[in-house]
Design a protein around this nucleic acid. Structure first.
Length: 775
DNA sequence: CAGTGAGCGAGCTTCCGCTTGACTT
């Protein structure tokens, strides 16, 4: 029998702590919350002061039973859940469910997992903070009321199985509004002028100095006029100013900043970052990965200092204490940092190594000296014009933290060229010009969100918590409100004028713009749901809603308000919105009239149906008239932006291009892009080569034959016993195909030696397995 | 990798935050 039972939230933490405590301490984990509101009947009694009905979920029953058993025999139970609102609630639920005696139960907290911190905690137990628990209950119940009252309205008025919530609905709103901002922003053209000057050096060689004109020109004529002036001008250096500048390191990682940097530097989706970090945490490489704190423990600071001293020297050390400035931070943990600074690299998968290295560098850099820079600005006067040319050079005087780590930024600044060392220059020095280029540029549209930049925005608004950023991003994609995709750019024409040897040469050029990679786009259903919510539930999807209820939760935690009163104040007006929406709203289908079809004279409109967005020509209601015709929208198209012309084009496909071997050849566009269908076989059209609207029969046949040859080449084996069983060569090796189903072969099997019996066994074994869940 | 887009109605869907595996590909 153990004298002492310590309960923490995470099993990895339990393992570490057990090492610090003596033999008579048993450390167990609750695996987070042990119970939650019942999903049946709301889990909240609206007729009885919002009395919550908590139940222990199926997957927690074993944990609870286990803890109960040990707690019964322990002399003292120490509840060491986190020191924040959720942690305090976990402590309270534990007391309730395990029926712990307050006399033999102690509540302790620590922010860092070191022997001293834990010893100190044991020596300073405190009482359960019921006000803080109540703040959590209010948070929990409010979220339940919002989610479980609005979602059913959506099922009725938009589509079944949809969802709304305090966090997810705002996340979707951000993406929808950004998309509309992008559609509504006009890009304004202007001309930017860059000059290349020749600077002779003592050695006789010369170097090129690049400088940008202080003015940008709105019109081509103005830019041209400026170039004409320059063709007859003298260029003289008017001013050289040298100023010291400093760069400081970024603070240590929190969950949100780790997700951002892993996305920017390595292209990780936020969920990947979290699962890799989880493995690093479980193997003891890093501290806890779900945190909003930038704080480092004294142990960590000592370790970082020692490592920096040893590797870089005294001048590079600068111990810093960072303060969090994110809204609603609860700081129950340390920042994310390596547990051992002398472990510069680790073994593991390449993802683990990369993420660890990122954490190691960022943490170490945070305790290093500023980088010192000398920035030089040179002004070059033009004898024939009032404008000037400006050149900037940067010299790194002392690298400081830069030797280890530099934070990346979301907005890639295309105009910011590598600034380097300037050639030696003097005031009043005359410069010869090599060439001057006036290029048409365009103002930029706002950028689309990536998963990580959306997390950043949510954190700024104080919406969501470290443990929910990644799941929220997944949810809004699963609900089909948002898609993460790549989009091809479009061509744009621009003008450039080059002044060289007294002549101006004008050229029209093209560039590709708007190429997107792994960006978040709203879907039509996302747009419709968002508009419905902003129309009927504006207070809930308001960007400040979370911040304002958080203030009230704080009041509850301070003991200034009773939680039921706060919920009452929220719920009464909220529930009126629900009733109003149910009674007074139309079914939302996102309908948008596009115009009149010139061939039939009927109205064309876009709307959402049971199977997604589609175009309809003609009306359903007209009696005796012909039935309307329908066509689904393609990937990347949206009800909101599709034109009449694009919509009518959708009806051109699928089209028959002729017969081949007495069977129809049909061209269409499916889930995976344009295809040729023949004899119920499909062949994809070649991207960038074949156009589904114009492809001729001859080319389609070519593709069919090509595919046929490929298939016959991939056929490894058949059996006379059952011709439906075929062994094929696939992308990842040989596999068995049988009745439209594929069966995996174990690695290392030689397909040549496969027999009919072994194939049959593989198939039967697979078919016997329980059927996979529908997603 | 179709073509669908009506209506009836049983029974289901749904929230946020705290934690890990157990699943399949």
């Amino acid at each position: 029998m153990e004298e002492n039972l310590v309960i923490v939230e995470s099993p990895a933490k339990a393992k570490t702590i057990e090492k610090f405590l003596g033999n008579n301490y048993l450390v167990k984990s609750s695996f987070g919350h042990i119970r939650d509101l019942d999903k049946k009947d709301f889990g909240v009694d609206l007729n009885n002061r919002y009395e919550p009905n908590y139940i222990v979920s199926e997957d927690k029953k074993k944990v609870v039973a286990d803890l109960k058993k040990i707690a019964k025999t322990a002399k003292t139970v120490w509840i060491a859940s986190d020191e924040d609102r959720e942690g305090e609630a976990i402590a309270w639920h534990l007391m309730e469910v395990l029926k712990l005696d307050p006399k033999t139960t102690k509540r302790i907290v620590f922010h860092e997992i070191t022997k001293d911190a834990i010893q100190h905690a044991i020596e300073h137990p405190r009482r359960l903070n019921k006000a803080l628990v109540d703040a959590q209950q209010a948070r929990r119940i409010l979220d339940r009321l919002v989610g479980f009252e609005i979602s059913p309205v959506l099922w009725k008025k938009v589509k079944p199985s949809l969802s709304a919530g305090r966090v997810q609905s705002v996340a979707v709103r951000l993406i929808v509004e950004r998309e509309r901002e992008i559609t509504n922003t006009d890009t304004v053209p202007f001309f930017r002028v860059n000059a290349l000057f020749i600077v002779p050096e003592k050695s006789g060689k010369s170097t090129i100095l690049k400088a940008e004109c202080s003015e940008r020109f709105a019109k081509e004529e103005d830019a041209n006029l400026f170039l004409q002036k320059c063709s007859k001008a003298e260029f003289v250096i008017g001013d050289i100013v040298t100023k010291p500048a400093k760069k400081s390191p970024a603070p240590p990682f929190t969950t949100s900043t780790l997700q951002q940097e892993a996305s920017r530097k390595m292209g990780f989706p936020v969920s990947l970052t979290m699962s890799v970090a989880q493995r690093l945490y479980e193997s003891g490489r890093i501290t806890y990965m779900r945190t909003d704190s930038v704080n480092l423990s004294q142990t960590a600071l000592n370790g970082a200092k020692k490592k920096i001293l040893e590797t870089y020297g005294d001048r590079y050390v600068k111990i810093r204490h960072y303060k969090t400035n994110s809204k609603g931070a609860q700081e129950a943990h340390e920042a994310i940092r390596p547990t051992d600074f002398f472990q510069e690299e680790i073994e593991g998968t390449s993802q683990e190594q990369k993420l660890y290295s990122l954490i190691w560098k960022r943490t170490l850099a945070s305790q290093m000296a500023d980088a010192e820079i000398e920035r030089t600005n040179v002004t070059i006067n033009i004898s024939t014009a009032a404008e000037r040319f400006l050149a900037t050079g940067e010299v790194l005087k002392f690298d400081g933290f830069l030797g280890v780590y530099l934070e990346s930024s979301d907005e890639e600044n295309l105009t910011d060229e590598e600034k380097g060392l300037l050639p030696p220059l003097k005031v009043h020095q005359r410069l010869d010009v090599e060439s001057i280029l006036a290029q048409q540029r365009f103002t930029q549209k706002p950028p689309r969100y990536t998963e990580a930049s959306l997390v950043k925005k949510l954190e700024e608004l104080g919406i969501g918590r470290p443990s929910t950023y990644a799941p929220t991003i997944t949810t809004i994609q699963q609900r089909d409100y948002v898609v993460k995709e790549d989009r091809q750019g479009t061509e744009r024409q621009y003008v450039q004028m080059l002044l060289k040897s007294g002549n101006i040469k004008r050229e029209e050029k093209t560039e590709i713009i708007g190429t997107e990679k792994a960006k978040l786009f709203p879907t039509d259903i996302g747009l419709v749901v968002n508009d419905f919510l902003t129309k009927h539930f504006e207070p809930i999807v308001d960007f400040n809603f979370t911040a304002s209820v958080e203030k009230q939760f704080d009041e509850i935690a301070e003991g200034n308000i009773v939680w039921q009163e706060m919920i009452d104040e929220f719920y009464l007006p909220f529930h009126r919105l629900i009733e109003d929406a149910l009674a007074n709203s139309e079914r939302a289908r996102g309908e948008r009239p596009l115009g009149i079809d010139p061939t039939s004279g009927k109205a064309v409109s876009a709307k959402i149906g049971r199977f997604g967005p589609f175009i309809q020509i003609g009306e359903t209601s007209e009696e005796g008239s012909e039935k309307p015709v329908f066509a689904s929208l393609q990937q990347g198209q949206s009800i909101e932006t599709i034109t009449l012309e694009q919509a009518l084009r959708l009806f051109d496909l699928p089209r028959e291009v002729g017969d081949f071997e007495e069977k129809k050849v049909i061209i269409g566009i499916g889930k995976f892009g344009p295809y040729v269908k023949h004899d119920s076989n499909f062949v994809s059209l070649k991207k960038g080569v074949d156009d589904p609207y114009t492809i001729p029969l001859s080319r389609a046949i070519e593709l069919i034959l090509e595919k046929r040859e490929k298939v016959s080449n991939s056929l490894l084996k058949t059996f006379p016993e059952d011709p439906e069983i075929r062994v094929l060569q696939g992308r990842w090796g040989p596999y068995i195909a049988y009745k439209k189903q594929n069966f995996k072969l174990n690695k290392g099997i030689n397909p040549e030696q496969l027999t009919y019996l072994t194939c049959k066994e593989v198939i039967d074994a697979e078919l016997k397995k329980p059927k996979q869940k529908k997603t």
